[in-house]
Amino acid sequence: MLRFFHQLGSPKHFYRIAGSWIPWLAAACAVLMLYGLYQGMVVAPTDYQQGDSYRIMFIHVPSAWMSLFIYVVMAAAGAIGLIWHMKLAEVIAISSAPIGASFTFLALITGSIWGKPMWGTWWVWDARLTSELILLFLYLGVMALYGAIDDKRTAARATAILAIVGVVNIPIIHYSVEWWNTLHQGPTVTKFGAPSIDIRMLIPLLVMAVAFKLFYVLVVLMRARLEVLERERNARWVRELVEAS
């Protein structure tokens, strides 16, 4: 077991092992996402107040969860890279940034589309929406900073510090609806006590959440493999790999 993790830390073995996982992840993700979408869009009952409009939740909520989850993963990987100088952690951290930014963007856009018919506005500057927008800027900042520094290892260290500092925003986003009055409603699933959502709506939501997690793992592994190849382009195993193909 320990040897497996040790191997995973070396770029060469990571490239091989991740490559063998990708088809399985892709298949599982596709199955879950199709099942979740079908259950959410067709099978789940309409809402007593919002009718069918609430169904955008099956995209909006998992996206918003992922935007927070990926940020924490990115910051944790960045910290591991800083402390133990582990190259693979740096690669995972920087590969996560564009995926997290995409999920944040998706959460903001679907929220806006949901907000117009329900609240009567595309956007308000309440604490939840504003802190989520700051999260998008943090992701973009991490990506820009990484791109601005030529030496990849220096760049990885600088972005890791930015990512770690930005972690303070994560609890702010999560608790914003409890600490302050906001137009955004309070938590439904992640609160103390039973979720205030019908079980036939909750199951597709959780299925979609798992599908989105798998999607993230899939894409981050694909991006990380590419990043590893680029960084190790002068290593012998990469040259052998290229010559063999």
Binding site: D47, W119, T121, T188, S196, D198, M201
Partner: peptide
């Protein structure tokens, strides 16, 4: 000059609400 609706965090089918 502007009225926005706030919805709650409860989601349920109409028959359950009834």
């Amino acid at each position: 000059d502007e009225v926005l609706a706030k919805h709650d965090e409860k989601y349920m089918p109409p028959e359950v609400a009834a």
